[in-house]
């Protein structure tokens, strides 16, 4: 079970958090102008990387804030957390 460093609250147990899938998938500003394929790309396609992945997490049983995480999915190492709207702090 991870210990997650919420950017707003500090280190807490994983059981307080909810995972929200891949990060940095921006909702298109003008969905109506997209083709089916372009919309499907936003809607369905996820990278599901084995290795370093950028993820959304929510401190659901805490401050309820969403934030992003850099996590290595192969060994569960959390390399960094950062706020929504910020750029990933490491490659």
């Amino acid at each position: 079970m991870f210990i997650i460093n919420c950017p707003f609250c500090g280190e807490r147990e994983q059981s307080e958090f909810k995972a929200g899938g891949e990060a940095h998938i921006v909702r298109p500003k003008q969905p109506t102008e997209l083709s089916d394929d372009q919309w499907a790309e936003y809607l369905f396609m996820r990278k599901n990387i084995k290795g370093v992945q950028l993820e959304r997490w929510n401190h659901a049983h805490g401050c309820r804030k969403w934030f992003n995480m850099v996590r290595d999915t192969s060994n569960d190492e959390i390399k960094a957390v950062y706020k929504m709207g910020e750029k990933p702090p490491i490659e």
Binding site: K18, G20, V26, R64, W66, M84
Partner: peptide
């Protein structure tokens, strides 16, 4: 509630 908060915080801040 979670879904609405998600959109407010991430898509439409």
């Amino acid at each position: 509630m979670g879904k609405l908060e998600d959109y407010l915080q991430t898509e439409w801040p």
